[in-house]
Computed example of a mutant assay.
Amino acid sequence: MFANFKVLYAIALALSFATSNAAAVPGFQKRENGAIKLDFNIERPDKLILNGNFTKRADDYNYALINEGSYYVAEILVGSNQQAVKVDVDTGSSDLWVVDTSSGISGTYGVYDHTTSSTFSRIASGFAVAYADQSHAEGDWVSDTIQLGGTGGPSLKNQEFGDATTSTINFGILGIGFPINEATADKYQNVPQSLVSQGYIHKNAYSLYLDSSDAAQGSVLFGGIDHAKYSGSLVSNPVVSQNDLDLNVNSVTTNGQTIDIGSNYVLDSGTTINYLDPTVLANLASALGAKYSSSGFYYFDSASDAKDISVNFDGVSVTIPASYTVGAFYDGDGNALTETGFLFLPQTNYHILGDVFLRNAYVVYDLDARTISLAQAKFTSDENITVIS
């Protein structure tokens, strides 16, 4: 029935935001010729609510969060009349899509009225995406002018994207992953590719900087690297998946112990916590002295019991401070399950290093070279940008 329906497991989105973090969305900034900096607001959920459908059988580790964010909200202008729409920047998917006014959705994130744009063109029906938390959107494939970051940003002519006439989500997505992961059999130039082909950047590559745990903003730097934002050296590793931005993780080290992993993990800005293989997670929790709850997660008696965790790749390690690994979990009714949950959950179906990891890494995604470069993030407002060529 849905020939072009593609389940993109790499992000799980929610219907509510932490309103205390809402703010005016920052825009684009040009940095050197061939580098475009797109700032975004970081919006966090009020509560990390665990999926009430979790099955507690020992061999069924498919726990997920219902309200998964953090979200990285950037503004784009759509159409000849520059309609302001806010989208979540996501490395775990590849399509841009926006919410159409015909969906009946309204609110602070904006909607797109294609009937008012003289540069609009309908391409085909059959746009459909679904995410791991069962949220979804459907509509048409269209093209129009897209301007990144609001007024003054790079303007992409005839950019293809999804126009969602039905959606369970009140905002769109700016997916910047591999084009092969687009939710259509007829592949097209997604936004990073269009930035190259329309002359704004030299290479399909970008750097992600999420800043510290209490920061209100982060940025994606298309076509450039900000050398002020990391310590040590950037070390490249090959992407090990044809579709997703996966790296091989060798091991994790904590509390004087190293736990072997030797498997692939997606580095995904659309996921808050880390999802580990259940056996790896059990060994890690044991090394930390974390306890197992009958509700299916690990926790500490006290937040002070948590320890730093280093994630080890070939040639580089990124350390997650202990304070980043602990947080509260809630059930579907909003009741606290624990105030000191371990922000790593078991998953058999997919393995992800999300916001908990990425906040501590400076990450350069080179989609042309199929490499990801990593270094320990440095939290600073200083800049030292060079162009990727």
Rank of each mutant, 00 (worst) to 15 (best):
S317A: 14
S323W: 05
D333Y: 12
Y330C: 08
G315V: 05
F344L: 11
G315S: 02
A287Q: 01
G289E: 02
A290V: 02
S302Y: 14
R359M: 12
S310Q: 10
A303E: 15
H351V: 09
D314R: 15
N312E: 07
L358P: 11
V318P: 03
A328I: 13
L358Y: 14
Y292W: 11
V316R: 01
L337N: 12
G289K: 00
A322I: 11
D305H: 03
A306H: 09
F344P: 09
S323F: 12
A290P: 02
A336T: 15
D355N: 12
G334H: 04
F344V: 05
F357I: 02
V356D: 09
A290C: 07
G296P: 00
T319I: 11
S293R: 01
N335C: 05
A287N: 07
D308S: 07
V311C: 07
P346F: 03
D331F: 10
G315I: 00
L353D: 09
V326R: 01
G315K: 04
L343S: 06
L358A: 15
P346H: 02
L353H: 05
A303R: 15
F313V: 03
S293T: 08
G332M: 10
Y330E: 01
A290R: 09
G296M: 00
S310N: 04
F357E: 04
S293V: 02
D301S: 15
P321I: 08
Y299N: 01
G296F: 00
T348A: 08
T340A: 13
G327L: 01
I309W: 04
Y298A: 06
V318T: 07
A306E: 08
A328P: 14
A287Y: 05
G332Q: 13
L353V: 03
S304N: 10
R359F: 10
D305C: 08
T319E: 12
T340I: 08
